[in-house]
Amino acid sequence: MADFVQIFVLSITAGSVYALIALGYTMVYGILKFINFAHSDVVVLGSWVSYTVAAFMFSRLHVDAEHPPLWIGAVVLLAAMAYCALSGYVIERFAYKPLRRAPRLNVLITAIGVSLFLQNCGQLTPYNLTSQGDLRFPFGASPQRMPDLLGENMSNDDRVMWSISFAPDANGYAPRVVVSKIDFSIVVSALVLMLALEILIHRTKIGMGMRAVSYNFDIAALMGVPVNAIISFTFVLGSSLAAAAGFLYALAFPGLNQPAHEVWVLLGLKAFVAAVVGGIGNVRGAALGGFLIAFVEMFGMRYIDSNLRDVYVFAVLILVLLVRPSGLLGSPEREKV
């Protein structure tokens, strides 16, 4: 029982990260109807920018590494989001905009190109931007360790936010379910961001513009919706969510792999699977899919075979696509000639 609850907690945490990334995929798909393969690389960018900024701040501000002030986390998050938003804008402007009217296959190939570009630029040999050598860019091909922004790798008790103890079994062993501070902050930040997005899309004028463009590109333009601005905004939004996801991921798993490492690709792929499973183009579906994928992965890992965690995710994808090709919440697409 304790086992079950603990895995439930882990799934919620992982699901929040997947959902945040999936939102970026699904928003771009909803508006431009193509898979932004480079989205997962923006997540990586977010993680690594977080690392770079955090390391820089730790070194310059002489932060007490055991109890860093919480605002540093906020600054790092904002910096990562700003950087990724800018990258998202540039990517859209120079790689995707010239292909607005091109066949979808071409845009897809371009997206793969952008993805390869980001991956490999990210792991070029870094330059020192400052004389002390504490601000290095790009990120290099060796893994790094994210500084501890919540100040909690000191002792196990510091990590714990809540813990629930269960009745001891026959051997006198009392299982404990632990919700760590990291889990808590990840879930809360993800939920806040998702709620903000929901309000933005359904309650604001720019959100209405996004919905109009995704409903029908040409007619939205005729009705005076500034289509190009809306698309740029969508990329900025999706990329900053990706940056937030990258930041949270780096908090949860401080050992950052090099930008082209397969771990990142798998993270992006799973988030994409989440978007497809939920119904790509549907924002609520992406959130749902993110949690669903995380549950399948975590529970499969615990109760079936831990080595096959990636297989479960793709099996779910294939299954959903076979039974309901437009995803759980997606509306079926009518084929018109």
Partner: peptide
């Protein structure tokens, strides 16, 4: 076979997922 129901980008993802599944299975 499943790809017949999928077009373009979905197919791309299924084939990508297939490659990854093969990779994971070979590791086992």
């Amino acid at each position: 076979l499943p790809s017949l129901r999928l077009r373009g980008d979905y197919l791309a993802i299924v084939t990508l997922g297939f490659g990854e599944i093969i990779r994971v299975l070979l590791q086992q």
